[in-house]
Computed example of a mutant assay.
Amino acid sequence: MRAIVLLAHSGHLDKSGTVHALGLGWTTSPTPTAQHVLIVFVEVQWSELGTSFPIRAELVDSDGNQVAHTEENVINARRHPVHPAGAPVTIPFIATIPPLKLSSGERYQWRVSIAGEMHEDWLAGFTVTAGDT
């Protein structure tokens, strides 16, 4: 299993499984942060199709302390008729994050865990700047 984690100012997942996002890939934010979305593309192997996986993200500061988290959700690994047999399938997931009051000058990371598994590259980080003036 692999995952790509991105931040966007806004976004949604449509019924066909396509992610629509604005302001994708930001890396700095004033405090408090604006509402934003965490986008995760999970690639599952053919052998994992038909399985459901719990997914959760936690926001940690530069010391590794948890400061926020998403509710646990579930992604369902399903095959669509267009996928060739044996090919991996990518499943998109989006979590809407409310505004957060964070410390200016601090670096934060959203770290994603899937089925209790977390990898060092399943994250999206950002630095907090001074608040809006």
Rank of each mutant, 00 (worst) to 15 (best):
M1D: 09
R2H: 10
R2E: 12
A3H: 09
A3G: 04
V5H: 04
V5S: 02
V5P: 07
V5M: 02
L6V: 04
L6K: 10
L7R: 05
L7E: 02
H9L: 15
H9W: 10
H9K: 15
G11C: 00
H12V: 00
L13P: 00
D14L: 04
D14F: 04
K15C: 03
T18F: 02
V19C: 01
H20V: 06
H20D: 01
A21M: 12
A21W: 07
L22M: 11
G23K: 00
G23R: 08
G23I: 01
L24H: 07
G25F: 07
W26L: 06
T27E: 12
S29P: 01
S29E: 11
P32D: 10
T33Q: 04
A34K: 12
A34M: 12
Q35A: 15
H36K: 03
V37M: 09
L38N: 03
I39K: 03
I39N: 01
I39W: 03
V40E: 01
V40R: 00
F41N: 05
V42T: 05
E43V: 05
E43N: 07
E43F: 01
E43L: 06
S47G: 12
S47N: 15
E48L: 09
E48D: 15
E48V: 10
L49K: 08
T51I: 13
S52A: 14
F53K: 05
P54W: 09
P54C: 11
I55P: 02
I55H: 03
R56G: 00
L59D: 00
S62G: 08
D63Q: 14
G64T: 04
G64F: 06
N65E: 14
N65F: 13
Q66C: 13
V67S: 06
V67Y: 06
V67A: 04
A68I: 05
T70V: 12
E71S: 12
E71T: 13
V74E: 10
R78I: 07
R79H: 08
R79V: 04
H80K: 13
H80T: 12
P81S: 05
V82P: 05
H83T: 11
H83D: 14
P84M: 09
P84A: 13
P84C: 10
A85M: 14
A87D: 11
P88L: 05
P88K: 08
V89N: 02
P92T: 03
F93W: 15
F93S: 08
I94R: 05
I94K: 07
T96Y: 08
T96E: 15
T96K: 12
I97W: 03
P99Q: 05
K101M: 13
K101E: 14
R107L: 12
R107G: 04
R107S: 14
Y108M: 03
Q109I: 00
S113K: 10
S113F: 06
S113V: 00
S113P: 08
I114D: 07
I114M: 02
A115H: 06
A115R: 00
A115M: 06
A115V: 01
G116S: 10
G116L: 08
E117V: 09
E117A: 06
H119G: 12
E120W: 04
D121M: 02
W122P: 02
W122K: 01
L123F: 05
A124G: 06
G125L: 03
V128Y: 00
V128Q: 02
T129M: 09
A130K: 14
A130E: 15
A130F: 11
G131V: 00
G131S: 12
D132E: 14
D132H: 15
D132C: 08
T133Y: 13
